[in-house]
Amino acid sequence: MTLDSYLLYLGVLVAFFATPPDTSQLLIMSNSMRHGLRRSLATVAGDLSANSLQMTAAAFGLTALIATSADALWIVKWLGVAYLAWIGLSLLISKAAPPDTGAAPKARLRVLFRQGFLTSSANPYAVVFFGALFPQFIDPASPVLPQLALLGATYLIVDGATLVLWGWAAQRTLGRVRAIQGVWLNRISGLLMIAAAALLGSRDLAQEAGR
């Protein structure tokens, strides 16, 4: 891979992430508002872990198999939608935190990790995305594995930085609006979760409508 190809790849990633928040970004915003950015790094780790597995699947040539498994994709996608909607509704109906702190109870790190992992895994088309993206920047005359490792690591770094940035922005916004706490914080976080579920589901519906 030449330096020009790598810089072009970086440009593509920057353009890809320079968009309104997607499902995973809405999740990190919600968790950062409720639990703080530091604890929500577990959500980022879960998201990136799922991405790593998806990249591995793409590297082993499973893209075509996944793309043709329509029923499996449908089940995975809508389980993810239901999972995010359930979290959001739970937050909407939950009671406010104790009035002396106004803070949400701290979730366990493994719970935050699981949320990030399952949310990212609920988009099985990511494997197809990686399978279509990486070959555009691979030089077949050079060893492929090191190139895949470089492309994958770069994606994870850019993705992780983007998630942390969204989480930081959400936490900072909350810090400036001190009145948002207790039940209202839960409601805002719940609405972000439901928005993530709606975004995930709407993509699937759009793809079905286009067939």
Rank of each mutant, 00 (worst) to 15 (best):
T2Q: 10
D4R: 15
D4L: 12
S5F: 15
L7Q: 08
L8M: 13
G11R: 09
V14R: 10
F16E: 11
F16N: 06
P20I: 04
P20K: 02
D22V: 03
Q25C: 05
Q25H: 07
L27Q: 15
M29W: 07
M29G: 08
N31R: 14
M33S: 04
R38H: 10
R38V: 10
A42K: 01
V44M: 10
G46F: 09
S49C: 15
Q54V: 05
T56F: 13
F60L: 07
I66S: 06
S69P: 01
A72E: 13
L73F: 05
L73S: 08
W74T: 03
V76G: 02
V76L: 04
V76N: 03
K77T: 15
W78S: 14
W78K: 14
V81Y: 13
V81T: 10
L84P: 05
W86I: 09
W86S: 11
I87P: 11
G88K: 02
G88S: 04
L89G: 08
S90A: 13
S90K: 08
S90N: 09
L91W: 00
L91G: 02
A96C: 12
P99W: 03
P99H: 04
T101A: 02
T101D: 08
G102L: 02
G102S: 03
A103Y: 11
K106I: 11
A107C: 01
A107T: 00
V111K: 11
F113T: 10
R114C: 12
Q115R: 15
L118V: 12
L118D: 02
T119I: 05
S120A: 15
S121N: 09
P124R: 10
A126P: 02
V127Q: 12
V127D: 10
V128I: 04
V128K: 02
G131D: 03
A132E: 15
L133I: 00
L133A: 04
P135G: 04
F137R: 04
F137Y: 15
I138V: 06
A141I: 14
V144N: 03
L150S: 08
L151H: 12
G152R: 06
G152S: 15
T154N: 12
D159V: 00
D159E: 06
G160H: 05
A161Y: 05
W168L: 05
A170R: 04
A170P: 09
G175D: 09
R176D: 06
R176C: 05
I180L: 15
Q181V: 07
G182N: 04
V183Q: 07
V183E: 05
W184C: 00
L185F: 07
L185D: 01
N186Y: 10
R187F: 08
R187Y: 07
I188R: 03
S189G: 02
S189W: 00
I194Q: 11
A196E: 12
A198G: 14
L199M: 13
L200A: 10
G201D: 13
S202Y: 14
R203Y: 14
D204K: 04
G210Q: 05
